[in-house]
Design a protein around this nucleic acid. Structure first.
Ligand SMILES: [Mn+2]
Ligand SMILES: [Mn+2]
Ligand SMILES: [Zn+2]
Ligand SMILES: [Zn+2]
Lengths: 151, 151
DNA sequence: AAATAATTTAGAACTATTCTTAGAATAATT
DNA sequence: AATTATTCTAAGAATAGTTCTAAATTATTT
């Protein structure tokens, strides 16, 4: 994952994203994302975590960095309804499952060999650039918990 | 446009959505939606059109009606990134294609016999309640237009 | 009709995000 | 190294979409 000669494992990857200048704050934001990626944090959540690592950083900078990293393709935005944008460092094609009970967001991988677009009858001549799949429901843990309460 | 004994074909359907009280303004909002459904209008766009049919209607009421109709399942919200919520009266399961060139939103039907969730490896035990599929790209018309310019 | 409940209206308030501007940091050039 | 040009950050103002509030209107029940 490193590109130069000496690299600590912490300040890894992140530097070769389309000739992006990797500033300290971008590094920090990116690291927060890779660390919390499974949590799909919002900008404010990233801000809280980034501030622990770099107390001087501002919310505006976090927004700037997130936008820059998104533009560079290092990070992806996740939209669930019209809630605050969440961020995800998982670049594999995947869907998002939002549990309406615990408010958590889970990555859902593609079935082996499947193509996400294949089930949709897209009109000929159009060019697909991106696909966002948001599934809302109740996750396994919460579903089990519910059955405990009732029944 | 009447509500009493005689019913025009225009003021159809809309009244039996889960015992919803079909007020004049809900009727108007619903009719705007069925008329402009293919356009996937935003709340403000619905407002503009509703005002033509009922000049007294307010934006707040349009929001209220849209929420009520959504709750009753008469209408569906469409979320494209974090842009303004759009509304769609097409209740068939379908995806949305958003053209980044002309800003239009198109309904994309399921491939015959296909199941939208089947390509995703959902964890066992979870319950799916809704699925929003947003595809962004360039539509056929705009793509053709582009080829005309360049090349 | 009177009382009660639901709905609409107009505008204020709210929230996530974007924009603006000035100054600090960094890079490139001399 | 000093100068210049460029990029980046910080702080707060501005914006857009939406939700909330309270009063007025309309519908329903008693
Ligand atoms: Mn993800
Ligand atoms: Mn639609
Ligand atoms: Zn859950
Ligand atoms: Zn187009």
């Amino acid at each position: 994952m490193s590109s130069e000669t000496t690299e600590t494992t912490a300040s890894k990857a992140a530097e070769d994203f389309g000739g992006l200048r990797m500033t300290k704050q971008r590094q920090v934001v990116y690291e927060v994302l890779t660390d919390l990626s499974k949590g799909h944090p919002t900008a404010s959540e990233v801000f809280v975590n980034a501030k622990e690592r770099m107390p001087s950083i501002s919310l505006a900078t976090v927004y700037n960095c997130l936008e820059t990293l998104t533009g560079a393709g290092a990070v992806r935005q996740v939209h669930i309804d019209r809630e605050a944008t969440r961020y995800c460092a998982n670049l594999q094609p995947h869907a998002h499952f939002y549990c309406t009970d615990c408010d958590k967001v889970f990555d859902i991988g593609l079935e082996a060999g499947a193509d996400a677009a294949s089930v949709w009858s897209l009109p000929p001549g159009c060019r697909v650039e991106e696909m966002q799949v948001a599934i809302r429901g109740v996750c396994g843990a919460c579903e089990k918990c519910r059955q405990g309460h009732a029944a």
